[in-house]
Design a protein around this nucleic acid. Structure first.
Length: 282
DNA sequence: CTTAGGG
DNA sequence: CCCTAAG
């Protein structure tokens, strides 16, 4: 849950620079796959590397306009790592502008401003769709890409090339150990505090919330009806998930009861022993 | 599926 | 980060 925004760490940037130095510009997939860098870049895709390198380059150019001789993307393979892109930047979704961060400060901080509420929900719309599909399909062996695609297509508007996007997303989620891949099937994996700095995964509270039928404001009545149908389906899905959670809670509380009963038994045995009685335990 | 570039 | 167009 710590990666709706996924800020780049200093380690990742270093690995990217070293990777470019080793493989050259444009070999993003190789860099990502390289075992030497994969340790830092496993949660990034080749496309992410490309975007990041572009951002670092513009940042470097923007800072020192007077010195343009230092080309940040050398085609030639350089022996020495860390040739360019000295500054760290933060990527902003809405605009092409990038905020420059003080290079002196180690950006190993976390936003304690705690966007806890937005945290999980702000995740790429596609990730939540995937979780929705997997938690509903509940296939013990996992669901393959086709099953997931067809499920999502029933409730959300998706682009034409959605299948391709979906598979990339799935692969990345597997890499982040958020999902489990069996053969060609993907299964929902238990929430674990993975390598990325995620504080403590708070149990997501399940509250069926009636959201507005937006995105269809300017549409026809029919479109609104379709949207409403989607939301009904989604609500049903959520109540199903909620039911599962209740079952789990009941199971836990039953365990607690048994534990307490056992504790009572132990007490009694202790009492009788201290009175000198001989206690036989069957 | 991978890159490149625009949004 | 998402999307689209090409190899």
């Amino acid at each position: 849950m710590g990666n709706p925004k996924q800020k780049w760490t200093a380690e990742e940037e270093e690995a990217l620079r070293a990777g470019v130095a080793k493989h050259g510009t444009g070999k993003w997939k190789n860099i990502q796959k390289d075992p030497e860098f994969n340790h830092f870049l496993y949660s990034r895709s080749n496309i992410d590397l490309k975007d990041k390198w572009r951002n670092m380059s513009v940042s470097a150019n923007g800072q020192g306009p007077r010195e343009k001789s230092r080309t940040p993307k050398p085609k030639a393979i350089t022996d020495s790592p860390a040739t360019a892109a000295p500054l760290a930047i933060t990527w902003t979704p809405g605009s092409s502008a990038a905020a420059v961060v003080d290079p002196a400060s180690t950006d190993v901080q976390m936003d304690d401003s705690s966007k806890c509420l937005l945290d999980g929900k702000t995740a790429s719309k596609y990730n939540t769709m995937i979780y929705e599909a997997l938690s509903t399909l509940k296939d013990p062996n996992g669901s393959d890409t086709s099953a997931i695609v067809s499920f999502i297509e029933k409730r959300h508007e998706v682009p034409q090339n959605f299948r391709r996007l979906l598979s990339s997303r799935l692969r990345r989620l597997v890499a982040q150990e958020k999902l489990e891949k069996v053969q060609n099937c993907y299964r929902l994996k238990r929430e674990s505090v993975n390598g990325t700095k995620g504080p403590i995964s708070k149990p997501k509270e399940i509250r069926p919330r009636i959201s507005q039928v937006n995105s269809y404001l300017g549409g026809t009545l029919e479109e609104a009806a379709v949207a409403a149908a989607y939301q009904v389906a989604e609500a049903e899905n959520k109540s199903f998930v909620a039911a599962e959670a209740v079952k789990e809670a009941e199971r836990v509380s039953k365990m607690a009861e048994e534990a307490e009963a056992f504790l009572q038994l132990a007490k009694e045995i202790y009492e009788r022993c201290s009175r000198g009685e001989v206690v036989m335990v069957a």
